[in-house]
Amino acid sequence: MKAENRFDLPQGTLDLLIMRVVALGPIHGYAIAQRIQQMSRDALQVQQGSLYPALHRLEYKKLLAATWKSSETGREAKFYELTAKGRTQLEAETENWKRLTELVGLILKGTLEGAS
């Protein structure tokens, strides 16, 4: 991976990404980080220092639920799942995000047309 390909995540999007990844099925913290990295084609690398506070915050807000299970390597790991509340929240935020990007895109496009 190259440093130039990496992005800084906009504020608040990390929670959305985590929920999206967790929505695919029970998953532990390390796997979440790896999955985000893979899905973004190595462009996004979530630091442990941001990931775990975010997970704990989402758990505290009852958007995620956690259970301890054996991982693929046999060690005990903490697996996160989306709660019903989390699923609703994810849908709402995904919708928000789509609308936001559309609108931002429109404006950016509009500015270019107007300037030309």
Partner: peptide, 16 residues
């Protein structure tokens, strides 16, 4: 204890 265990798991997985 859980917090320590969770982070330790991440650490060990990364090392592995």
């Amino acid at each position: 204890g859980d917090l320590e265990k969770e982070l330790r798991f991440h650490f060990e997985s990364q090392v592995a």
